[in-house]
Amino acid sequence: MDAVARRPAAAGSRPRWWTELPLLALVYVAYSAGRLVARGDAHTATGHGQTILRWEELLRIDPERALNRLFTTTPALGVPADFAYASLHYLVTPAVLIWLWNRRPAHYRTLRTWLMLATLVGLVGFTLLPTAPPRLLEAGSGFADTMAEFSSYGWWGDDASAPRGLGGMTNQFAAMPSLHVGWALWCGVVLWRHGRSRTTRALGVAYPLLIVLVVMGTANHYLLDALAGTAVMGLGLLLTRPALRFADGVRGRLRAGGRLRTDGRLRAGSRLRADARLRADDGLVMGTAPGAPAAGAPGAHANVSGGCQTSAGERFPRQPTRRGRPAVGAAASAAAADDGAATAAR
């Protein structure tokens, strides 16, 4: 856990909120839609629930009946438990995510990825193993639907923990694994690992344990469901580092491709400018420069002749002429004139 939690500090800061919110919304929509698509038929789901219950009885790990009987006969326990089951799952987890975003940004990306991957693994479990919770087993199984028993106290209906009239929008056969327990475990680990006060760490220990008691006492999950939810979170944690490495690799390739395209455009522009300069230089060498006097016009000077021999009036292409000093061609003409005058004097 330490190595995984330290990764985002080296990878960079937290993601931008305008990309993070749509991503979380997409995962939650997939979670809700997946639960609806993987409903399964009631007969198969009930059979899976009975099989789980028989395995628990064989292993002598079946505290669900005792807890459910206690919560049903004691409204002081049953009513708060129903409120906790119907609300905390959707309130505490987002609150911990926001807390991470604000207070522990270096760890946010890793822990958010862990939660998302575990949720997707849970959806696979819902699809492959639709399971009826204890409250939906036949009457002789010894379970009572606490949510239906105390529905007059809350907003949930008789058929599910969803608001009244919206029971058809939830999958009641998504008991295995228990993501109520999985998400609570994630919150507990985050609060324990990254909370600095004793109160925060105590909440990190108490919250998952409370949710385990609530989901069994309200007859919404078996103990094996809770253990499966824990295993799902463990698998999500194992997948977190490879997933982050893969995402970083894809992001790096995309950035490298963008840089290559940008560099290609810059190089193409540089070549065009270089070609333009070469054409301008060729114009100076092969002919007259733009704006220069035409050949034979007053003040025009011919370029160096083809035989590379200079004569009076010729100049080298683009040869600088300093102010106050005669050009090379003019100096040669003056020297020739002096020689002619000296010869005549003799």
Rank of each mutant, 00 (worst) to 15 (best):
G299N: 07
R322L: 14
A106V: 00
C187T: 03
R39V: 15
A330T: 15
A295W: 03
D282K: 02
V205K: 01
A118F: 08
L185W: 04
A10M: 03
A297Y: 01
V121W: 14
H194Y: 13
I52E: 06
V27P: 00
D145H: 06
G306H: 10
R6D: 11
L210K: 08
R65G: 01
G258I: 01
W17F: 10
A344T: 13
A3I: 09
P8K: 07
G154P: 03
R193Q: 12
R265A: 10
G165H: 02
T262K: 07
Y222H: 15
V205Q: 00
A256H: 14
L97K: 01
L123H: 04
A268H: 09
T46P: 00
G258V: 06
T44I: 06
V4D: 12
T44N: 05
V205A: 14
C308W: 15
P208S: 02
R35G: 15
V190L: 01
S333V: 11
A184S: 15
T262W: 10
A81N: 09
V285M: 12
P326Y: 00
V79Y: 05
R193Y: 02
V79L: 05
A160W: 04
A81S: 15
R196I: 03
T51K: 10
S141F: 10
R60F: 12
L97I: 12
V304P: 00
R14L: 01
C187S: 05
H43Q: 15
R245T: 13
S141V: 02
R7H: 08
H180C: 09
G142N: 10
T113V: 10
R104C: 05
A144Y: 04
G299I: 09
H221I: 01
R14P: 00
L97Y: 02
F83L: 11
L272N: 01
Q319T: 11
G125R: 05
V181C: 05
D2S: 09
A312Y: 08
W18E: 04
Y31S: 10
G165F: 01
A10Y: 04
V27T: 09
G291S: 03
A38K: 07
R6V: 03
M176K: 02
Y207K: 01
V29R: 12
G122F: 04
P163M: 11
L235S: 07
R198W: 12
L244E: 07
N303H: 14
G154D: 05
V92D: 00
R14Y: 00
A206F: 09
L129H: 12
D248F: 00
R164K: 10
D159Q: 11
T343D: 14
L179P: 04
L58M: 11
R261I: 12
R14F: 00
G78A: 12
F83P: 03
G313K: 10
R135M: 08
G157D: 07
A139Y: 00
G125F: 13
R279G: 02
M1K: 06
A162G: 04
P22W: 02
A292V: 01
L223V: 05
G78K: 05
R103Q: 12
A274G: 05
M233S: 04
W17S: 04
G34P: 12
S178Y: 01
G264R: 11
M116N: 03
T343W: 13
V29L: 14
